[in-house]
């Protein structure tokens, strides 16, 4: 069971399985993907006019690309500091408050990339969308929803999330003060997407 808890300078996310960790480590690769479907979605057409669009791409696209890359540096740095709990196959990740915007945007980009790379449409993300999915799509939907849960943690949306206790209190061993999050293989669609 994944859990999240508030620390002084950010959120601690624990109980991360190997699949969760692999999904998080895949975020930079997804955002950097050169697949035209991903580039088209992350850098969409902005103007109807071809001339205006060309000018927009000359000026705006390089800036956006630089911004995406600088955010990924932050994400990579945090991922490099992920800690494995001894004796069990679970990991803990600290998401500092100062990195929240970089994480939120990068997670969103990765979710969009997963969506277009796996030929998904809105129906696949609905509660009963499982029956429409191939195995590969099912896995992609799981990753999209898992990354959404991380976004929700960063936006402070997880209910019953208490502050992490003072380590001196001695009750931090169980990590029981954070919110438990079920991240089983197919979510029941608890997170409302835009449509």
């Amino acid at each position: 069971m994944m859990w999240a808890a508030r620390a002084d300078d950010g959120y601690l996310v624990g109980g991360l399985t190997r699949d969760c960790l692999e999904t998080l480590r895949g975020v930079p690769m997804l955002v950097e993907s050169s697949d035209p479907r991903v580039r088209e979605r992350l850098l969409p057409d902005t103007y109807d006019s071809a001339e205006d669009e060309q000018q927009w791409r000359e000026h705006s696209t390089p800036e956006l690309e630089r911004l995406f890359m600088s955010r990924l540096q932050i994400v990579r740095k945090d991922l490099a500091a992920v800690r494995k709990l001894e004796a069990i196959d679970l990991w803990v990740l600290l998401l500092p408050d100062t990195h929240a915007n970089a994480w939120l945007a990068s997670l969103n980009a990765a979710r969009l990339a997963l969506f277009v790379l796996n030929d998904l449409d809105a129906r696949h993300l609905e509660r009963d969308g499982d029956s429409l999915c191939t195995d590969k799509q099912r896995e992609a939907v799981w990753r999209i929803q898992f990354l959404a849960e991380i976004q929700c943690i960063l936006m402070g949306e997880m209910e019953s999330m208490d502050d992490l206790g003072d380590p001196e209190d001695g009750d931090d061993e169980e990590h029981g003060k954070g919110a438990d999050i079920d991240h089983g293989p197919m979510h029941d669609g608890p997170i409302p997407p835009l449509s």
Binding site: L104, N108, R111, L112, F115, D121, A122, L125, I144, A148, Q151, C152, M155, E157, I191, P192, P193, L194, S195
Partner: peptide, 29 residues
């Protein structure tokens, strides 16, 4: 619209980018 981006994330971005009050950001979202 897109089927992936979270509604709460969109609202948050509207507030962050435009400085809109929460009610206006939610209405636009």
């Amino acid at each position: 619209d897109d089927p992936v981006t979270l509604m709460t994330y969109v609202t948050r971005v509207f507030i962050q980018v435009f400085g809109y009050p929460d009610s206006k950001a939610q209405r636009l979202m």
